[in-house]
Design a protein around this nucleic acid. Sequence first.
DNA 1: CAAACCTTGACATGATTGTGGTAAGGTTGT
DNA 2: ACAACCTTACCACAATCATGTCAAGGTTTG
Lengths: 126, 126
Amino acid sequence: MDALTIQEAAQTTGWSPRMLRYIERAGLIEPQRSESGYRLYGPGELQRLRTLRELVARFDVGLGEIGFAMRLRRDEELAGAVDAWLEAEPTRPEDVPPAEWLRWEQDKHTKLLALAAATPATSHAA
Amino acid sequence: MDALTIQEAAQTTGWSPRMLRYIERAGLIEPQRSESGYRLYGPGELQRLRTLRELVARFDVGLGEIGFAMRLRRDEELAGAVDAWLEAEPTRPEDVPPAEWLRWEQDKHTKLLALAAATPATSHAA
DNA sequence: CAAACCTTGACATGATTGTGGTAAGGTTGT
DNA sequence: ACAACCTTACCACAATCATGTCAAGGTTTG
C-alpha cells in the first residue's frame, strides 16, 4: 500500500492538510480518491509536494504563480500572447552576451512555431 | 515630440495615471524620465500599454502574473525549476495528439538547453 | 460501538493586489 | 505669477491569497 491519507501526506511533505486541499483546488496536485472519497497520495504526488514546497520557498513564488505557469503551458494561445508581449520589450542588444545570442534566436523560432501551431480563433475582438 | 506625459498617455491607452504608476512599480513598463523627473511615454511604451490592456482583459490575467512571466524569462534558474516541476506532471500520453507530440519533444530539448546554459551555481560544472 | 480518521463548507485573519483618492511640493507654459 | 500639470507619499477599500479553525456528517478500524 503506497498511498497515504491526507494527514499522513501532510506530515511527510511539510504541508498542512488544509494546504493540501488548497493546493488541490488550485489545480496543482490532484490526488486519486478512494471509493468513499478519501484523498490518496501516491509516491509521485508526495515527491511533487515536497518539490513544490522547495520551489515555493526557494524562489518565493506563490501557488497562484505556479498555477499560472501551468496555465501558460496548457493554453498555447495565452502563452503566445504573453510571449509576444514580452518579446516587444525594449532590449538593448549590448546586454546580451554573444553566447546567449544563439539560444535567443533559436527560442524565438520555437515561439513562432508555437504561435503558428496554435491559431485557433484569434481574430474577432474589434 | 513623440513622448507623452502620464495624463496624455493614460488617455490614449485607457489606463488611469494611477495605474500607469502602478504598472511601472510592477516593473512591467518603465518609461523614460525628463530631466525634472516627469515620466515620458514614447510610441513603443504606448503600444505596449495598449497591448497589455488587451492581454489582461482577454485572458483575465493579473499584472502580477505578467510580471511573473517576465521574471521567468529573466531568471533562467527559476524557469528551469518551474519547468522541471511541471514536467513531472502525470501526463497521460493519450491526451497528446501525435501532431503536438513533435513540438513537445523539441520543446523539451530547448528546456534542457536552457538549463544547461544557465548553470550559474549548479554543482557539477564539468 | 466508539475513537480516530475523512469530507465539504463556513468563518476568520493578515498580507497583497488593483484601484481610487488627497496632500505637499516641484515644473511648465502663457 | 498663476493655472495646470507633474512627483512622491500616504489613506482607503473590495477582492484575493495563504492559513487556521470549527461544525456536521460519513468511514475505517480496534
